[in-house]
Design a protein around this nucleic acid. Structure first.
Lengths: 339, 339
DNA sequence: CTGAAAGCGCTAACAT
DNA sequence: ATGTTAGCGCTTTCAG
C-alpha cells in the first residue's frame, strides 16, 4: 500500500540503513553523492513518506507538541494558535490542541493524555498562578513555554502582555479625560492576568493621587459577559457616589458591563466610560465600540513557539525568562470625557 | 524514566504479553481475574502510560485524526472544533488541526503531512466543490467526513446546514416585510456554500414571483468584510432602482455590506435591510445587530465526528450520506419593513 | 562508503 | 490461563 523505507532501499539496490542515511539531511554526508541521488529519486517516484510513528518510537520523539488552551471559542486564542503553528509547521512539528475549560482536573487528565502521546513539548495558555500541570512539567523537565498567563514562581519561559503598563496607560487615559472616580472589575485572582491587573490598579490609583474610596474594586470569578454584568450591578447597587469610569479586566467582562449599564439605563460613555483588555475581534463593531488594549496575539504565539522550538531542537533548557509584549491602547467610543 | 510495559510485567511477575492483555479491556477476559487485578494495581502504582507510538506502530493506527479548516480565526470554526473534540476525546482520539487558508496547494501539502503521521481519518471543513484532497482521500479509502462544505460529487459523508431552506426562509422573511427588490451578494462559486445559496436564490426569487430584473446578484471571490463592502459599492453604483434588501452569503460579507452602506450614507434597516448566514459570535452585538441563520456549529462538528468515529472503529465504509441540519432564522435589527 | 544487526515498546498469533 | 515469538518501520551503532 504505502511505500516503506525497505521498499525504497530494495528498489534502489541498497540496504535500508543506507537508504535511511541518504534520506536524512543530517546523515546524508555519510553516503556517496550518487547513491543519495538515486535513493532520493526512487523515494519521490514511490511517493515515500516516512512513518513518523516508527521514527518516533526509535528516536523517542513524536514531532508533536501539546497546546493547552482554556477554550478555543474564546476569540483570544485562535490568533495565538495561528502564531504558534507558523513556527511549528516549518520545523516539522504539529500541535495537539486541547481545551481545559479552566478546569484543573480536566487539565491534568488532558495533560496525561498528551504525555502518553509522547509530546516533545508543551505550550500552555492555561496556567493558574499555582498550577499543578506546570509543576509536573518542571519536575519531569519537559520543554514547555507559557503564553498569556504566568505562574507565581517563574519556572518556565513565558510570553505575556505587559499588563502593569497597560493598567498605567488605562488610568492615564481616563485621568486625562477628567475621571477621578474609576472602578475596577477584576478577573479571577487565581490567574495572573486577574491578579496582576488588580494589584497594578491599586498601585496606580495611589500613585496617580486618586482617592482609594472613590475607586472601588470588585473581583469576578470568571472572565465572561455574565460575570461582568453581575459585577456592574453590584457596583451600582453599592452606596456612595457612582464611578464615572470602569476598567474591566478583559473585553468579555467589559461587554458584560455594557449590558449592565444598558439595563440600568445608563449610557456609555456619557454616564460611564468603559475599558477592557485584549482587543478581541469585533470590539470595533459592538455598540459602543470598546476602548481596549491590543494584545499582539499572533506575535505572542509566534514568540512562544520560537522558544519552544529552540529548546526542543537544541535540548538546552533556557532560562525561565518572561517576555513582556507591549499592548497599544486603542481608543474607541466607550471612553469619553467626564460629564 | 517512564514505566514501560515490560517494567509492569516484571513487577507483577508476569510476561509482557500477559500484562498487555490484562491492561487492554478488549483482551482482558483472556486473563485470570486475579492476575488482571494485580497487573492493574502495579500499573497504576508505577504510573504506567502506554506508549501510543509503539502501539500505533504495531496496530497501524495513530489514534489521531486530521482536521483541516480554512482558518481558525474565522469564528465559525472553533465551535465546530469543540463539537468534534467532544466525540474524539472519549474515543481515545486526538485531532491534529491545520489551517489551509483556502489555498489548494497549502491544503495538499498539509494533507500529505497528516498522512505521514498516519492519521486514522479526516474531518474536512475545507472542501472545494471540486477538491483534490477529497479525491485523494477517496482513492486511498481513508475514512473522512465533510463539514459545512460539500463536494459536487457526493463521495464522502457530510454534515452541513440546510442552505436551500435557509434561502427560502430568508426571502420569505423579506417578502413578508414588503420587500420586492432583493439583491444577493453571493460567495465564491467554487465553494458549495456560495454555489448552493446563489442558485437557491435564483430559484426562490422566481418561485416567489419576484421580477428577476429587480433582484440583482453579485458574486464575491472571498468570504470577508472587504469583499462585502466592494460588492455593495458595485451594487449601488449600478443603474436602476436600488434594492431595499440585501442577502449576503455569510455574516462576514454582511458586515462588509453594513460598512458599505454606512459609507454611502444609507441606513440599515431604514433604507436597506441586510441579512447574513451562520450567526457567528457577536452578531447580536454589532450595530445594527444582524438578522441571520443560526448554524448549529457545535452539533455539526459533533455529528461529523460521530460518523468518523464509527467508521474508524467498525472499519465499514458508510454510505456518503449528507446530513442537512436545520438553521433557525434569527431576526434582529438589520431587517425591517420596506419604507 | 555500505551492510549487518539490534532494538525502540507494543500487540497478536501461536504454542504450551 | 500464561508464555513465547515475531515483527510493525525506522535509526543507529558497529563491522567490513
Amino acid at each position: 500500500m504505502v511505500a516503506t523505507l525497505a521498499d525504497v532501499a530494495e528498489a534502489a539496490g541498497v540496504h535500508p540503513g543506507t537508504a535511511s542515511k541518504a534520506l536524512n539531511p543530517e546523515s546524508r554526508h555519510l553516503v556517496a553523492a550518487e547513491t543519495v541521488k538515486r535513493v532520493l529519486e526512487i523515494a519521490t517516484k514511490l511517493n515515500y513518506q516516512p512513518n513518523s510513528l516508527a521514527r518516533g518510537l526509535r528516536t523517542k520523539r513524536s514531532y508533536t507538541i501539546g497546546f493547552m488552551v482554556p477554550d478555543l471559542n474564546n476569540p483570544l486564542f485562535p490568533p495565538i494558535v495561528r502564531g504558534v503553528e507558523e513556527v511549528l509547521g516549518p520545523a516539522g512539528l504539529s500541535a495537539l490542541i486541547v481545551n481545559t475549560d479552566n478546569d484543573p482536573k480536566k487539565g491534568m487528565q488532558l495533560f496525561d493524555a498528551l504525555v502518553n502521546r509522547r509530546c516533545d513539548g508543551f505550550i500552555l495558555a492555561t496556567a493558574f498562578r499555582n498550577d499543578p500541570v506546570v509543576k509536573e512539567i518542571v519536575k519531569r523537565k519537559i520543554p514547555a513555554v507559557l503564553v498569556n498567563r504566568l505562574t507565581e514562581a517563574p519556572t518556565l519561559p513565558a510570553v505575556v502582555g505587559d499588563e502593569s503598563r497597560e493598567v498605567r496607560d488605562a488610568i492615564e487615559h481616563l485621568v486625562r479625560l477628567g475621571h477621578k472616580r474609576i472602578a475596577h472589575i477584576a478577573g479571577p485572582q487565581n490567574l495572573s492576568t486577574g491578579y496582576i491587573r488588580f494589584h497594578a490598579f491599586k498601585n496606580v490609583i495611589q500613585s496617580a493621587g486618586l482617592k482609594e474610596s472613590n475607586c472601588p474594586t470588585i473581583v469576578s470569578t470568571a472572565y465572561n459577559e455574565i460575570a461582568g454584568t453581575d459585577a456592574v450591578k453590584k457596583l451600582l447597587a453599592s452606596p456612595g457616589a457612582k464611578p464615572t469610569a470602569i476598567l474591566a479586566a478583559n473585553d468579555q467582562l467589559a461587554i458584560g458591563v455594557l449590558d449592565g449599564l444598558k439595563e440600568a439605563k445608563l449610557s456609555c460613555p456619557e454616564d460611564i466610560s468603559v475599558m477592557g483588555f485584549n482587543d478581541i475581534p469585533m470590539m470595533a463593531r459592538i455598540h459602543p465600540s470598546l476602548t481596549t488594549f491590543a494584545l499582539p496575539k499572533h506575535e505572542m504565539g509566534f514568540k512562544a513557539a520560537e522558544i519552544l522550538r529552540a529548546w526542543i531542537e537544541t535540548g538546552t533548557t533556557p532560562e525561565p525568562t518572561i517576555v513582556y509584549l507591549p499592548c497599544p491602547l486603542v481608543v474607541r467610543e466607550s471612553t469619553g470625557p467626564v460629564a
